[in-house]
Structures are given as C-alpha cells and as structure tokens.
Amino acid sequence: MSLVNALNHPARPAMLAGLELLASAVVMLDADGHIAYANAAAENLLASSLKAMSRQKLSAQFINPDELDHICAQAREHKFSDLRQDLTLERAGRDPLHVHSIVSALDEPPGHILIELREHLQHLKLDREERILDQSQVNKELIRNLAHEIKNPLGGIRGAAQLLEMELPALHAVQLREYTQVIIKEADRLQTLVDRLLAPHRRPHIVGDVNIHEVLERVRSLMLAEFPSGLTILRDYDASIPEFRGDKEQLIQTVLNIAHNAAQALAAQMEEGTAQIILKTRVARQVTLAKVRYGLALDLHIIDNGPGIAPQIRDRIFYPLVSGREGGSGLGLTLAQTFVQQHMGVIECDSRPGYTDFRILLPLP
C-alpha cells in the first residue's frame, strides 16, 4: 500500500506503526494543512482522537497558529530540510503547550509536512519521577531499618516499666504507678507508629481483578459517613476503563488517605457548606511510568477546593513524618506513594490556593 492510500485508509496506517511507539507527538499534514495522521502521543498531547481531528487544520487546534503555519509554509517551499524551533502554542480553556518542534517536508506524498512536537514539561516530568523513585527507595530502606532499630528497645522499655510497677511498694504504689503508666502508654504509642511504618512491607501484596470505580465508590461512602455535612463528593468517571490486576485493599487505602487529608484541609469550607472533592478517572495513552513505556494507563485524580499545600512542604509531602496539619502523623501520603509504586505507578501533586490535584497513574492491560 502506498503512503497516499494508507493515509486515506480509515484505520491507522500499518506502515506508520513505528510512529505509534514514539514518546513524542507526530502529526502529518496534507498539502492543504489538514491533519492526515497523528500518532497516539499526538492524540494525548492535543487531547483529541485522530478520528476527531482528521481532515481538520492543525491551526484550528490553537489560538496562535501563525508561527507554526509560517514554518509549514516554508517547509512546503523547501526552504529547509528540517527546522527545529521552540514554540508556545495556546489553547482555548487549557494550559498552553511549550514544545520543541521539528518540521520537515515529505517528498511523498507531495506537499505533505511531518511535524514532531516534544513537550518540554515531559522531560522535566520524567526527570522528576526518576528522582522521586530514587528518593522513595532510600526512604523505604531508612524507615525499615530505623523501625527495626526502635522496635527492640521499645519492647525492653515497656517490659521494664511493667516489672517496675509490680515491684512498687504498696505505700506509694498509686502515686508511682502514674509514672510507670506514662512509660507504658508512650511505649505503646511509639510501637503503633513503628507498626504503621512497617505495615506496607509486612502485608502481602494480594493481587486480583480491580474495578477502579468500585474502589472510588467505597472511598466515597466511607468519606460521606465520616463527614456527613458540608462536604460534596462529585464523580467524573470514564466508564470505558477496563479492569486491571492489583491489590484492591491497598488502592482503597491509597485513595482514602488522600481524600481524608483533603477533607481535613477543607474544615473551613465545610462550615460554609462549600467543601468539594472530585473523583475523576480518564485513560492516558503512551505513558512512561517508573521508566517503562505503557500504551494505556489509568489517569486518576482526587481534586479538592481547599487552601492548598503550604509551599514550604510542597516538595516533601511524600516524605515520612512530614505533615501540614497540627497533630498529623505524616504517614498517609507516604503509604499512598508506597502502595502506588507497588502497582508500578506514580503519584504526583499540583497544588495552589483553592485547588489541589493528586494524580495517580497506573498501567492498564
């Protein structure tokens, strides 16, 4: 099949299958500037399907297409073999795209242009994810070793306090027992903390078929039972998301930890009756997770309209014992990150006053 006939075929051209594996977006324009082909990464970048964009002008996707149109016109006139240029492409109602573009003219079919768009943010995102994974591994080893080092002397301290309490003279037993009880209760409190630190490493990873919307409905019912007034939890689900293999209980705990943190941050809005949490699911295409490329991924968002995360801890919220709330243990997000990484996924956060979005990406079959 010639490329001309392939581009007119309703399905994706088989001879262009290699482009589907690229992480960068690739768009082919015909001689009139209409979109003749877009790979999966381009669909993801432009938030539209090839079927929807087919035979539309690429310039229709952006508010400021003049510079891109000028480059394409020069390419058709063969003024260069390929041109590399950084562009900022603005879109109605969405964040602008900051991309590095590579524009080339094709000899066959005549007048066709091949455009490669590499989003600058994607490279930064991959670097950030790699640092998070490395830091998380260091944190896990540190927590595990530290917890075991604390656990043994704690048992000795508690046991010694109990023995001391038994040997107290009857005359002063009541008064002195207050001190031994303080030792025992504080040892128990630290033991509970250590157990929580070790929990993700002790519990077996129980894998089964998971419907993410069943997970979210369970979390929603638990949240509404705990916060019955002043809080609205909205659903924005993509019903086409398939089941996948995972640990359902771990995923419930992950989403519940994030949603519970959000609800606690929404205390002021609850009093006004304006507190809102959104549970949103989508499918993402051609996603890199933990250095592995996946064709499909679950794109889960837990969004709240709270005050946002304090800037001074925003880069450390997944570290153990870091909390933005008075009296918080700082373990909820650490456990959430551990559980997500056990599912070969990543978790990230975008926060500003009035908007906090925790995004979880998990590979799909």
Rank of each mutant, 00 (worst) to 15 (best):
L3G: 06
N8C: 08
H9Y: 15
R12G: 02
A14D: 11
A17R: 12
L29V: 03
G33Q: 08
H34R: 15
H34N: 14
A36P: 00
N39T: 00
E43S: 05
S48L: 10
M53E: 02
M53P: 01
R55C: 04
L58D: 03
Q61C: 14
D66V: 08
E67D: 12
C72Y: 01
A73S: 15
A73Y: 10
H78G: 03
Q85P: 02
L89K: 10
L89H: 14
V99E: 06
D107G: 15
P109D: 05
P110R: 15
G111A: 07
I113V: 12
I115L: 13
E116P: 00
L117I: 00
Q122N: 06
I132E: 09
Q135G: 03
S136Y: 11
E141L: 08
L146K: 03
E149P: 04
K151W: 07
K151L: 10
N152L: 12
N152V: 12
R158V: 08
G159W: 10
A160F: 13
L163D: 11
L164D: 07
E165L: 10
L171A: 14
L171E: 15
A173D: 01
L176H: 01
E178P: 01
E178Q: 14
Q181K: 09
K185F: 10
L190E: 10
L193A: 08
D195T: 12
H201Y: 15
I206G: 02
E217P: 01
L222E: 14
A225D: 15
F227M: 08
L231E: 05
D236T: 00
Y237F: 15
A239Y: 14
G246N: 11
D247E: 09
E249K: 12
Q250D: 09
L251E: 00
I252N: 00
T254I: 03
T254Y: 05
H260P: 04
A265D: 08
Q269P: 03
E271D: 11
E272N: 09
E272V: 02
V283N: 02
V283F: 00
V283S: 01
T288F: 02
V292W: 08
R293M: 08
A297N: 11
I302R: 00
I302P: 06
N305Y: 04
G308Y: 09
A310N: 12
Q312K: 14
R316L: 09
I317T: 04
Y319T: 05
G328N: 06
S329H: 14
T334K: 09
T334E: 06
T334H: 13
V340T: 13
H343E: 01
C349V: 07
R352Q: 15
Y355E: 07
R359A: 04
I360H: 04
L362A: 04
